[in-house]
């Protein structure tokens, strides 16, 4: 890391209030492939933390372990100081491929999480409607996923995750299946969402620019077996104009520094 770059992003400050804490987590697939090794990382409450690394570094694996969708081979994950034994109501997942049920309309898809919690139909539909409106899909409640564009489908996926009112939102490359222009719009919307919702976001991405643009913290993972290479906090002011971020010198330098660091993993 160059001395110059250090001006623009800092090493992590100690986390005082963490929503999610990953302790010594390791993951071995089928007894032979080590995907993750000795991962120790805290995710500060109310902020967005990205997991970034070369492909195959286990970032999605780590996210799914936090979600309780995959068991860790060793170590543990604490959410609100309680160990994770499986999926829980305080976490909600946004899927890369949206994972919408094609046979259910937008309303039923968004209400699915509430339905699983046994909330009465009229109540869950009311909650779902307000979240559908919030992601800008009012009027599309009765449509089916195949009638929507990719961007709209991911809004449905997001509304579904927001509807269950979870503390922690886990997002697995949520914008990778939409086109570049929609993605930029989503990234801007995400910043607004973080500012408004005060929830904890854990965000997996393979795009350096995206990570630097949206994150309060970035956890850099090394190539397989995934270990934590570095944790950085881009020194970017996020209060103002979202377009200003991409022109911010700290943005450009952080992107470049991360690229220089990740480049070493690519043959």
């Amino acid at each position: 890391m160059t001395a110059l770059a250090h001006q623009f992003f800092t090493e992590p400050s100690p986390v005082t209030d963490c929503a999610v804490s990953v302790r010594n987590v390791g993951k071995v697939y089928a007894g032979v492939v080590t995907a993750l090794e000795n991962i120790n990382v805290d995710f500060p409450r109310g902020q967005l933390t990205s997991l970034l690394g070369p492909s195959g570094c286990g970032k999605t694996t780590l996210l799914k372990i936090i979600a309780g969708l995959l068991p860790a081979t060793s170590g543990e994950v604490l959410v609100n100081d309680l160990p994770v034994a499986g999926p829980g109501p305080e976490r909600a997942f946004v899927f890369q491929d949206f994972a919408l049920m094609p046979w259910a309309n937008v309303l039923r898809n968004v209400a699915f999480g509430l339905e699983m919690r046994g909330i009465a139909k009229s109540e869950r539909e009311e909650i779902a409607r307000s979240h559908i409106a919030q992601v800008g899909l009012a009027g599309f409640e009765a449509r089916y996923p195949h009638e929507l564009s990719g961007g709209m489908r991911q809004r449905v996926g997001l509304a579904r995750a927001l509807a269950v009112n979870a503390d922690v939102l886990l997002m697995d490359e949520p914008f990778s299946a939409v086109d570049e222009q929609i993605r930029r719009k989503f990234q801007e919307d995400l910043l607004t969402l973080i500012a408004r919702e005060k929830r904890t976001f854990i965000f997996v991405t393979h795009s350096i620019e995206e990570a630097v643009y949206v994150s309060d913290r970035i956890v850099l993972l090394s190539a397989r077996p995934g270990r934590i290479a570095q944790i950085i906090e881009p020194a970017i002011e996020r209060g103002g104009d979202p377009d200003a971020i991409r022109r911010h010198p700290a943005y450009l330098d952080t992107v470049d520094a991360i690229w220089q660091s990740l480049k070493t993993y690519l043959e």
Partner: peptide, 14 residues
């Protein structure tokens, strides 16, 4: 069946 659909159901506690 898409595995992510099953994971989705699991993540919401089904």
């Amino acid at each position: 069946i898409s595995p992510s659909l099953i994971e989705m159901a699991a993540s919401f506690g089904a």
